[in-house]
């Protein structure tokens, strides 16, 4: 009897440990295995990506539909290439879709906002967005402002 309760409590302890791992994975870190499968990749090149990082959100009208997977530099044009993974349910972006790097709040995180265009054709897996708007860099803005003041 004594041995049974001992084994039972050890079993419950181990079970609690594994359940905690599952809670940490699913509830705290938001690990979602199903979402990774149904997605396709599109690229966009920006003159300046500002503070955009991998895992940043990709949104349309404020709704998150994917995320940034990878950021690299194009050696020829010296522009930043952003690789985005988009949920497969949203595959009706036209080829003239515009992408902009936006900021949440005044000092918040950077994310990508997409605005669909009016073209007939849709972006395919591996497609590329040409109409892009770079991140707002505060230093450039202040510089421009000062320059205009001086010119006045």
């Amino acid at each position: 009897m004594r041995k049974k309760t001992l084994e039972l409590s050890v079993g419950l302890f181990m079970l609690a440990g594994f359940i905690s791992l599952a809670v940490l994975a699913l509830n705290v870190s938001g690990l979602n295995l199903a979402q990774e499968k149904g997605s396709y990749t599109i690229y966009a090149s920006f003159e300046n990506i500002g503070g955009l990082t991998a895992r940043s959100k990709v949104t349309v009208a404020g709704v998150t539909i994917g995320r940034v997977v990878n950021i690299s530099l194009d050696k020829d044009s010296f522009s930043g290439i952003v690789e985005m993974s988009i949920n497969k349910d949203y595959n009706t972006f036209t080829t003239d879709t515009a992408a902009a790097i936006l900021t949440a709040g005044l000092l918040g995180e950077k994310y990508i906002g997409l605005v669909s265009g009016a073209d007939e054709e849709f972006l395919q897996d591996g497609g590329r967005i040409d109409d892009t708007q770079s991140a707002l860099v505060l230093e450039d803005l202040i510089g421009q402002f000062l320059f205009n003041k001086v010119n006045e």
Binding site: F13, M14, A16, G17, S20, L21, V23, L24, V28
Partner: peptide, 15 residues
């Protein structure tokens, strides 16, 4: 075995 288990439980209870 038990310390990693206890850590996981600690994290979940703390959150």
């Amino acid at each position: 075995i038990s310390l990693p288990m206890l850590t996981l439980i600690f994290n979940v209870v703390g959150i």
